[in-house]
């Protein structure tokens, strides 16, 4: 588990993680915040259904893909925590029909 080295002092905001409300540090890197919150896995692969978590944290491995506000396959390591975000585990291939 990733744990904070110091008690967090900044504001936290409410997001929804697979419909469950969770409070995360506002403006934090989303992938880092989710890892620290114990969200696992971020996704399952479309090929074998294997679980994945962020690997590179810098935008090149595409293993941190999650669904954000109805848009599938977003790179969580390139996003920041914002109040009201609706986050979903990415299960296999993108589902665009659900977002219609």
């Amino acid at each position: 588990m990733f744990q904070p080295l110091e008690p967090g002092s900044g504001p936290r905001v409410r997001v929804f993680l697979d419909d469950t409300p969770v409070d995360l540090p506002e403006g934090a890197n989303l992938a880092a915040a989710l890892l620290t919150a114990g969200f696992s896995p971020f996704r399952t692969t479309p090929v074998s259904g294997a679980p994945r978590l962020p690997f590179c944290m810098m935008g090149v491995c595409f293993d941190c893909l999650i669904e954000i506000d109805g848009i599938p396959n977003r790179q969580a390591c390139l996003e920041q925590v914002r109040a009201g975000m609706r986050l979903r585990r990415q299960s296999g291939a993108a589902n665009l029909e659900a977002a219609e």
């Binding site: 990733f2 744990q3 904070p4 080295l5 110091e6 540090p25 934090a28 890197n29 880092a32 915040a33 890892l35 620290t36 696992s40 896995p41 679980p51 994945r52 978590l53 962020p54 690997f55 590179c56 944290m57 810098m58 390591c77």
Partner: peptide, 19 residues
């Protein structure tokens, strides 16, 4: 899950101060 790069571990330190 649980395997990541050392650079990723460092980014965790830099961005959220977690380890």
């Amino acid at each position: 899950p649980g395997v990541m790069t050392a650079g990723a571990a460092q980014i965790m330190l830099k961005t959220t101060g977690t380890a």
